[in-house]
Amino acid sequence: MTWTSAFGRGCGVILQAIVDGLALTRISPNILTFIGLVINTGAAVLFGFANEHNYVRMFLLAALVIIGAGIFDMVDGRVARQTDQVTVFGAFFDSVIDRYSDVALFFGLLVFYARGNRFFYVVLVAFVMVTSLMVSYTRARAEALIKSCKVGFMERPERIVLVILGALFAKWGVMAPVLWVLAVLSTITVIHRIKFTYQMTKHLAPIRAAVPAPARNAQPAGAAAFSSSPNVPQA
């Protein structure tokens, strides 16, 4: 057994112990999902309040907070399955809250760069925020038409890991290249999903709007009123 597999197994044991403890409380998985959002919002606040003097410490704290939020992201689904609380709404709610968590983190970074008068990085973070949402949207919209659209690399776990790395190593200016990587790879992922969906749907019949059948012997409303008037001579 390698040390990496041993580490993974150890983390799995710890994670399962957390799931077992939460399952005993019969807590709703949706509450766990929402707690993850609250914690990520705390990380966003740390990003937003960082400045040129304390950003290394604030970014480090934000990274640790995001890791804590990630625990809730990992356990909510497991708790739902272990306590037989898996629902369609739960999957929907989890997806929506994840989007809010992503936006919160990037908004915190946007505030940080705005307070430092770094306009270019304000625009870059805004672009990353949009493309991150589009990565999720293209998959959701595609899967309303086809069975699956999981192509592309830059999904949410990868985005979160990169943000954590950027925050942990902010002292060496890692967050700036992280944002560039997110911008480029997220855009490539969106384009890949658009191309994949086109290839999967181009053989399907075009969607035609339903046209209601015309009513038999129908007359314009004005004509009907004109012909039915007792004071008007009939032609």
Rank of each mutant, 00 (worst) to 15 (best):
D98E: 00
T131Q: 09
F120Q: 06
G68Q: 09
Y137E: 11
Y137M: 12
R115P: 01
L64T: 05
E143D: 14
F72E: 06
L110P: 03
V79N: 03
M74A: 15
L109Q: 08
Y113W: 15
D76S: 02
F93P: 02
V96A: 03
Y113M: 08
A104V: 04
A114K: 10
F106Q: 03
V111Y: 05
S132L: 05
A62P: 15
V65F: 05
R99L: 00
F106G: 00
T131M: 14
A91P: 02
I67H: 03
S95R: 05
F89H: 08
A63L: 09
F119E: 12
M134R: 00
Q82N: 15
G68V: 14
V130C: 02
Y100D: 00
A104N: 08
S132Q: 06
A142K: 08
F92M: 13
V88A: 15
R139Q: 12
A62C: 12
L110Y: 11
L110Q: 06
I67M: 15
F107W: 07
A62R: 15
V86S: 12
D73M: 04
F120W: 04
F107I: 03
M74I: 11
F93S: 05
A126I: 03
F107L: 11
F72S: 05
G90N: 13
G68W: 08
F112L: 06
R139L: 13
A126R: 05
L124K: 05
Q82P: 14
T138V: 12
S136F: 08
N117E: 13
I67D: 11
A140R: 14
V111K: 01
F89C: 08
F119D: 09
V65E: 01
Y121W: 15
A126F: 14
T83W: 09
V79M: 01
Y113V: 09
R118L: 14
L133S: 06
D76C: 03
A62G: 15
L133Y: 04
A142C: 07
M74Q: 11
G108R: 04
D94H: 07
Y137A: 04
A142F: 11
F119M: 10
A142E: 09
I67F: 13
A114P: 01
L61W: 15
V96E: 01
L105W: 02
V96Y: 01
V75Y: 00
I67A: 12
D102G: 02
A142V: 10
V111P: 05
I67L: 15
D84Y: 14
F92I: 07
F112W: 07
V125E: 10
T87R: 13
T83F: 09
G116I: 03
A69C: 03
A62I: 11
A126D: 06
F120C: 01
Y121P: 06
R115K: 14
V130R: 00
G77W: 03
V135E: 10
R118W: 13
R78L: 09
V122N: 07
F89K: 06
V103F: 05
L109M: 11
D102N: 00
V79D: 01
D98Y: 00
E143G: 14
V79P: 02
I97W: 04
D73E: 04
V123C: 08
A69N: 07
Q85W: 08
F127N: 05
S136C: 12
M129C: 14
